[in-house]
Design a protein around this nucleic acid. Structure first.
Length: 417
RNA sequence: GUGAGUGUAGCUCAACUGGUUAGAGUACUGGAUUGUGGUUCCAGUUGUUGCGGGUUCAAGUCCCGUCACUCACCCCA
């Protein structure tokens, strides 16, 4: 019988890689602390309704990418495809509006989307997510973008492009929508099949179409930013002034349309030139109508999500540092089989002093143990009958090849430094 | 969901147009060196050629199916 394998689009992150994850998520955590955001732990599955109403039931995510199932109580639940809807749900449910505003939250964890895997795209993937809920000031949009850029700056990433757009609000979007439809109508027949379908349902997405014909047709289409209402225009201008003030370089792209319905006003993406087709390392924006969509009062919010796999892929492509790879300080070598219990005791002493140590459990020869020591540790601590008699341990510096005899106490003092 | 490419040892890859018992490097284990690794030398272990079926005297090689991986479309982090 064939052994069971991990499901498609999932993968195991093993010891040769997991330390990189600890480094990256540690930096995300540091930045969140410095920006005054608090960590939250939210459920990995939610009522399906949260996403169909929040993300939008005509979006690809909800229409064809969700892991939805009926639980034993007959409820339809869904493995979260993104975190923002849960964040807003949590804000409402925990009455965070009664606390300091905006509520500044962050979280990290796995998301699930049923898609065909490719480079930088998995069915289970990890996102770092931050949200500022309860404020409509453009300064918060600015902080959001700045926050994301600061993470990548600290990680040492280069060649990133911040792509910015405003997608308007319920007041101006219908105006733009109509302007766009009027513009496209004369050449409707030439649009690709998917865009014909988008024409009524979500014409903004046509701007994002990669088919050459559609690209050509939309080339001179009216821009969203030309149709913004006064409020949205002000907001966008304030944000741009702020970005200029902090020296952020952004690219304006009127075609940037996010695939989630809840975005209003600010929409942005940070793209990496060192990924494949899935080049967005971060995506976010404002979602002033999300709270209402899921049955709450009007509560504005902004935030972004960043895909950790993609960040790590980009860092690897750019040769960025991941800090120090964890390695044992000491490998304890038992010169004879009879000394293994003493080796074990020494190892325990070291570990209790927070000196990382390991030893052989395979009954290997001394030579074999030394070889393992050389591959895994800075020092070899050799213990055998002569050491036991003298009450010492032979300590060998494996890089320099020097060695000396030390008591346990001397050894700990030496290695503690 | 669509398209293309790839599946041979733990890893990286060989095996001419189908032709003997599927090889090499690396890794691993032991030895040379009976208490000392990273260099060298010697020896040894490692395989359902992804899986299932078909064609053939003969299949790692050709055909069909299936699964997985990779890349792209789509979508997005």
């Amino acid at each position: 019988m064939e052994a069971v394998k991990a499901p498609r689009g999932t993968r195991d992150i093993l010891g040769d890689e997991s330390w990189k994850w600890a480094y990256v998520t540690g930096i995300c955590r540091d930045v969140a602390d410095d920006y005054g955001y608090k960590e939250v732990h939210l459920p990995i599955f939610e009522h399906t309704e949260l996403f169909s109403r929040g993300v939008g039931d005509t979006t690809d995510i909800v229409e064809k990418e969700m892991y939805t199932f009926i639980d034993k109580g007959g409820r339809s639940v869904t493995l979260r495809p993104e975190m923002t809807a849960s964040m807003v749900r949590s804000y409402l449910e925990n009455e965070m509006s009664k606390g300091p505003q905006p509520a500044k939250l962050w979280g990290i964890g796995p998301m699930f989307r049923y898609e065909r895997p490719q480079k930088g795209r998995y069915r289970q993937f990890v996102q770092f997510d931050m949200e500022a809920i309860g404020a409509q000031d453009a300064l918060v949009d600015l902080e959001t973008i700045d926050f994301s850029m600061e993470i990548y700056r600290r990680l040492g990433l280069r060649n990133l492009q911040v792509v910015l757009n405003s997608v308007g609000c319920p007041k101006c979007r219908p105006v733009y929508r109509k302007a766009l439809q009027d513009f496209l109508r004369p050449r409707y027949d030439e649009l690709c099949d998917t865009c014909k379908g988008r024409f009524e349902r979500n014409p903004l997405r046509i701007l994002d179409c990669k088919s050459p014909i559609c690209k050509e047709i939309t080339e001179n289409a009216p821009a969203v930013t030309d149709c913004l209402c006064d409020e949205c225009r002000d907001h966008y201008e304030q944000l741009n002034r702020g970005l200029e003030k902090i020296g952020a370089v952004v690219v304006h792209d009127n075609r940037l349309v996010r695939g989630l319905d809840y975005y209003t006003k600010t929409a942005y993406e940070i793209q990496s030139g060192d990924l494949g087709a899935q080049n967005a390392v971060c995506g976010g924006g404002r979602y002033d109508n999300l709270a209402e969509a899921i049955g709450g009062p009007h509560v504005p919010g902004v935030g972004f999500a960043s895909g950790i796999e993609r960040v790590i892929l980009t860092m690897e492509a750019q040769g960025c540092s991941f800090g120090r790879k964890p390695a044992n300080k000491v490998y304890v070598v038992a010169a004879e089989l009879s000394a293994r219990l003493d080796a074990m005791a020494l190892m325990r002493t070291l570990r209790c002093s927070r000196i990382s140590a390991d030893m052989d459990y395979m009954g290997r020869s001394m030579k074999g143990q030394m070889k393992a020591a050389g591959a895994a540790a800075e020092y070899a601590c050799i213990i055998g009958t002569s050491e036991i008699e003298k009450g010492v341990v032979t300590v060998k510096n494996l890089k320099e090849g020097t060695q000396e005899e030390l008591t346990d106490e001397q050894l700990i003092n030496k290695l503690k430094q």
